[in-house]
């Protein structure tokens, strides 16, 4: 891991709303092929932080660099073109299209064919679209209206869309929220496999500590807008500050983890 080049470098990221600091002086990095979790209690500034990484929000101060290139303040679509895929806490898909077409639109954009007016989109890179859908495990639903999908499948679809531009970095905002426990583990295993195979860096936020400690190579802990801990799952688990914040949750986790280890 240490030999992997730095993919994303964040320095001194700061954002405040009306005098309240949502994020203050946050710096970290993500390497290619690395899976990093960003955790913290509600209101810690995770979403704000995320939104600043792909240009949804502009930071007051600080820099975001992707492979050394400064992308601070660029609009989301420009950041995407540099190879950053994103999924949302509440899924954002195209409900009037079929599942496959959802991916095809992303492929159209990736191929820079947005202003093409004569080709047929339903035939556009159908094979690639189906491959991506198979990859995330919703291949059977390709022809279904996207609006009919179960929530978990929507999350998978979002992942397929995010993968359409062969990203270097995936930003996943609570990728397993609203899923059944088994689904969560499946999805994260899938993500980890893809990240490993394609050497994609993954940064995700998550409430489920099982998921976090199971899948993250590294964990960043955010509290009240500042980064209070960073390190391997074991380091973070032992960190007293983190324990103080997570109080009960952390204990519950320990207990569960041991059970899991025993089985």
């Amino acid at each position: 891991m240490s030999v992997a080049p730095t993919l994303l470098a964040v320095e001194d990221l700061t954002k405040s709303y009306g005098g309240v600091h949502a994020v203050r002086g946050v710096s970290f990095s993500v390497a290619a092929g690395e899976i990093v979790a960003l955790i913290g209690p509600n209101g810690a500034g995770k979403s704000t932080c995320f939104d600043m990484l792909n240009g949804q929000k502009t930071p007051d101060r600080g820099r975001v660099r992707l492979l050394g290139e400064d992308i601070t303040g660029r609009p989301p679509r420009a950041v995407w073109r540099l190879g950053v895929g994103r999924t949302f806490q509440i899924t954002a898909t195209f409900p009037t299209m079929t599942v496959r077409e959802n991916v095809q639109v992303a492929l159209v954009s990736y191929a820079n064919k947005i202003f093409n007016v004569w080709r047929s989109t339903p035939d556009f890179e159908r094979g690639e679209a189906d491959r991506l859908l198979e990859l995330v495990g919703v291949g059977g639903y390709a022809e279904r209206p996207c609006g009919e999908l179960a929530y978990g499948d929507l999350k998978r679809l979002e992942l397929a869309i995010a993968l359409a531009n062969h990203p270097r970095l995936l930003l996943m905002d609570e990728p397993t929220a609203g899923m059944a426990p088994r689904e969560r583990i499946e999805l994260m295993r899938l993500t980890a496999r893809i990240a490993r195979e394609q050497s994609i860096g993954v940064l995700f936020t998550e409430h489920d500590m099982d998921v976090v400690f199971e899948h993250a190579n590294r964990i960043l802990v955010l509290n009240r807008g500042t980064l209070i801990a960073e390190g391997s799952p074991d380091d973070v688990r032992r960190d007293p500050q983190v324990r103080a914040i997570y109080l009960g949750e952390g204990l519950v986790y320990d207990a569960r983890h041991r059970e899991g280890a025993g089985a």
Binding site: R77, A92, M97, V117, I161
Partner: peptide, 24 residues
């Protein structure tokens, strides 16, 4: 049904998602 038509529909269906997949 062209790529442009789908991109346009994409902006209607979800502004957030379409910006996030590079659509202006």
């Amino acid at each position: 049904f062209s790529p442009f038509g789908y991109s346009l529909r994409a902006t209607r269906d979800s502004a957030l998602r379409s910006e996030a997949i590079g659509l202006n």
